[in-house]
Amino acid sequence: MTEPPHGADASTARDAIESGDPLPGTGGFAGEVDGRLVRDVLGREPLYLDAASDGRDWRFEPTDLAEPELLDAGTVVEPDGARREVWSLPNPAPETDHEAAVDAVRDAVLTSVREPNSDGLAVAFSGGVDSAVVAAGAPEAPCYVAGFADAESHDVDAAREAAAAMDRDLHVVAFDHDDIERAVPEIVRATGRSNAMDVGIALPLYFVAERAAADGFDRLAVGQGADELFGGYRKVVDPAEDHRVDANTVRGATREVIRSLPDQLPRDVLTLRAAGVEPVAPLLHDRVVDAALGLPAELLATDEERKIALRRAVDGVVPDDVRGAEKKAVQYGTYAARELDRLARQAGFKKRMDDHVGQYIDALVAGEV
């Protein structure tokens, strides 16, 4: 397969390979450059090799490959099949000037969210600081939020309040059990993933993207990356006491979480493309990553607050109530995970069974329920 790289032109990718610069000023890239296959340092664009063909066949998505293997982030595959790590995540010393660190985040974030052209652009909007700053950068773009139809979900409530505070046009996408049963096989086919966590996360993204596409938009701006880059997860607050991370410091745990992005992002990218839109993720631009990597622990997460630098950076850009709002993970805030579990149990996959939701998903994809 020969196709220009996604996410950057060939010359930019070529220069990054030759220089070894892991953050060359892009939003990520993957593809073929001079006969070499590449995937950027954070894996913001997916690229799959076919293990059944000794890696000679490849695609941007796993569909149609006999044994799809996600290429490791930061890797170049030479024409002879040899693989080498070209880029690794920078590890700068923490910035000691807190004001300068927040200013750097502010400049990087605001430049990035204002950069995308607004033509054909909609915003996935959950009412938290991440999606709010993305929306602030695209003031003419309509905002979309998903939630289960028979209940006012946390995300819908938060999005309504935030949209009112920001005077934004909000479209609520209400999904029901029929929608879930229809979408799950499509998501699994597109992403190659059928585990309950990935499908639960993908469902609301799919519904928002599907509605935006039906309304005539071909790009969807998302807030992906902010939680990882800026210390948004509870597990980074006291990592020495949290079994979910190996690191013992806030910065170490944050870095550990950032390094999970190359595995997570293909799910989101492929889900959105399957629903008919191209993802736009301004908070994952190299300039934002660079600013975030230098943050000290005190500007990442404490017992009292998380994403500290990001919240300070958007002061005056995002309303205070929205800037300080806490959010649930999308699969819980939209009730997607809850209703997926309910459908599994209704289909006879009881909680006492091992991975009952995963078994239900496999049966649904196979047409057995």
Rank of each mutant, 00 (worst) to 15 (best):
E305T: 12
A329W: 02
V322F: 03
V317R: 03
R312P: 01
R273P: 02
E61F: 02
E305H: 06
D50K: 06
D179K: 03
L220W: 04
G294N: 12
E181R: 15
D215Y: 04
L270V: 09
D218S: 14
E95P: 01
G252E: 11
D57Q: 12
A209G: 14
V105G: 10
P262I: 13
G192W: 04
A151E: 15
F349S: 07
R287A: 15
V237C: 06
L299E: 14
A291K: 07
Y233V: 05
G316N: 09
G128Y: 07
G81R: 10
L300N: 03
D362C: 00
E278K: 07
F349C: 04
R39P: 01
A159E: 11
T75P: 02
I17E: 12
E181H: 02
G35C: 11
L300F: 05
V269W: 02
S260R: 13
E67P: 05
D218G: 14
T191F: 02
P266I: 07
D315E: 15
R311T: 08
E152A: 13
N117H: 13
D341S: 14
A221L: 04
R251G: 06
A138Y: 03
E278W: 05
V245S: 09
R306M: 10
V129E: 10
D97E: 10
V208I: 15
D178F: 02
A240F: 01
G348C: 11
V208C: 13
S19D: 08
E256A: 06
L23P: 12
P266W: 03
D80Y: 11
L110A: 05
N91D: 15
G7M: 10
A101W: 03
S88H: 14
A66M: 03
A93I: 00
A136T: 05
T2I: 12
P185I: 06
T96M: 05
A202G: 06
A183L: 11
V280C: 04
W58K: 06
R352N: 13
A138N: 13
D169T: 14
A337M: 10
D130Q: 11
G223E: 08
Q346W: 00
A158Y: 01
V173L: 07
A141K: 10
A347F: 06
L65Y: 05
A135Y: 05
V237M: 04
R44W: 01
F207E: 12
Q331P: 00
R193K: 13
P262C: 13
S19C: 04
D80T: 11
F175E: 13
L300I: 10
L270F: 11
E85M: 08
A209E: 07
V288Q: 09
A149D: 15
D64E: 14
K328G: 01
A52Q: 08
G7F: 08
V109I: 07
K235Q: 12
N91T: 14
S11W: 08
S11T: 14
A66S: 13
T75R: 11
V365E: 06
R345A: 13
E304C: 00
T111S: 15
E67I: 07
E186F: 00
L37Y: 05
D103Y: 00
R251W: 02
A344F: 10
A221P: 01
A146K: 02
G294W: 11
V199A: 07
K328C: 01
D242G: 07
I201C: 01
L283W: 09
D103R: 14
E18W: 00
A135E: 04
R84N: 00
V289F: 04
V102G: 06
V318N: 09
D242P: 04
V102M: 06
K235T: 13
A93W: 00
D150E: 15
